[in-house]
Design a protein around this nucleic acid. Sequence first.
RNA 1: GGAGAGGUGGCCGAGUGGUCGAAGGCGCAGCACUGGAAAUGCUGUAUAGGGGCAACUCUAUCGAGGGUUCGAAUCCCUCCCUCUCCGCCA
Length: 426
Amino acid sequence: MLDQRLVRQNPELVVEQLGRRGLKLDLTGLQLIAQQQRDLEEQLSNLQAEGNRVGKEVGQRISTGASPAGPEVKELRELGNRLKQQVAVLDEEEKSLSARLREQLLGLPNLPSALSPEGVSEADNIEVKRWGEPRIEMGLQEHGAIAERLGLLDTERSVRIAQSRFVTLLGQGARLERALISFMIDLHARKGYREVLPPILVNTASLTGSGQLPKFAEESFRCADDDLWLTPTAEVPLTALHRDEVIPAEQLPLRYVAFTPCFRREAGSYGRDTKGLIRLHQFHKVELYWFCHPQHSDAAHEQLTRDAESVLEALELPYRRIELCTGDLGFSAARTFDLEVWLAGAGTYREISSCSTCAEFQARRSAIRFKEGKGTQLLHTLNGSGLAIGRTMAALLEHGQQADGSVALPAALWSYFGAERLTAEA
RNA sequence: GGAGAGGUGGCCGAGUGGUCGAAGGCGCAGCACUGGAAAUGCUGUAUAGGGGCAACUCUAUCGAGGGUUCGAAUCCCUCCCUCUCCGCCA
C-alpha cells in the first residue's frame, strides 16, 4: 500500500512513478477523498475535544457540590448531547471516507524502485549475468518424457485424484522432491536463515497484507466455509508472521527460510505448459524472506538473490539472472531479479526464482515496523524463491540425462537422495 | 461437537461509571552510587493520526462492532479469539 500522505500531498509523483509501470492513472478523485478524510478527521477531533471538556466539567461540578439535577449541570448535559449528535454524523462520514480511501489504496501497486530499469514488457528486461555451461545437444529429451520413462510421476491418475494441472510423484520422483526440499532448507539454514513451517491455509488479512488481495482473488483457491485460502506462496504466511508488530532495530534483519506447498489457480493460462512439472495448481517451494532496515534493503536484495543463486550453483545448473523492467514488475515489488534455469531438453531458460524487494509496501499493508531510538518506522520486506522444487527437478532431469537413459545427479544431492543417479525402475 | 473460564501496555497483573492511557511489579533505557560489577536509589519507557521549530499539545485505541450515559476499561447487546475439561481425532 502506498502512503496516503504521499497521495494527498504529491499525487503527481505517484502518477508519474506508477506511469513507469505503464499505468495511466488519474488520482484526482483519490486525492480529493484523502483530503476530505483528513479535514473531517480534524473537525471530528475538535468536536470530541469539546465533548471531553464538557464531560469532565460535569464530573467536577458534581464532586464539588453541585446538584446532579440542578440547572447548571442540566445545561452542560444538554450541550454534551448536542455535541454527541454532531460527532455521530461526522464520525459516520469519516468512516465511510476512510473505508473508500483504503479500498482504493489497496488496489494500487507498489512504486518501482529508482534502480529498476524502464520498460513496458518482458522484452525490456535486462540480462544481468549468466552462470554455467548450458548443454546444447541434439536429441535431448524434455523432462516430461524422461520422468515418464523413469516412472517418476503420474499425471493421468492425478486427474482422478484432483484434476488437471496436478501431479503425483512416485518412487524416485517422490524421493528426489523430498531430497531437494531438505537440501535447500539445509543450505539456507547454514547461512543463518531461520527455518519456518507455517500454516498453508491463510486468512484474508494475511493475503491482503502481502498484496495478493483484493486484486488477485481469482488466482487463489478459497475454502468455502471459512475465512481461509490456500496460500499461493510462503511469502504470504511469512509476511503475516510479524503482522502488527514492532521489532527492535537490533534484531534486524530477520531472515527466514520456509518450505510450503503453493496453490495457484493459474487462471488465464489454459493450454500453456500443460505437460510436466512447469505449471501446476500445487507446487512446492522453498522460500527466502527478509525483514530488514530500509537502509540495508538494496544490499539485502543482492544477498538474497545470491543465496538463491547459490542453490543453482550447488546443483551445477546453468542459469541467468534477469532484472525485470518497470513494466514487468509484480504488484507488490519495487525491484525484482528473476533467475532462469537452463532447461536442456526444451532448449530454453525458464524462471525458477523471483527475488523481489517490496520496500515498505507490504510492511505498510501489514503494519510491520521497527523501533530505533524513539519512534517507529516501517521496515522493508524482501522475498525470493530458493528455489521452486518442481522446476528444479525438471532442470535436473534435462541437464543430467545420459545416453543410457539414466539421469546423473549433482554430487551435492547424493547423500540426500541416497544415490548418484536416477535409473529405470526394475 | 458439549460444558466452563477469560481477552487490559513488551510481559505479568490491578482496576465495576467521573479528571484512567490506565496502579503495582517485571523487563528495558538513562543517571547516581562503585576501581569495575552486583545490589540499591532516582528518572524515563505504548501505538496511530493531527497541530507546533521546539518544549509541548489535541484526538483515537483496555479483543472487534454496536448501545446506554454529560462521561465507559468498568453497564447492556452482537460477534471474534484464546484457554481448561469432556467427546472425536493424526
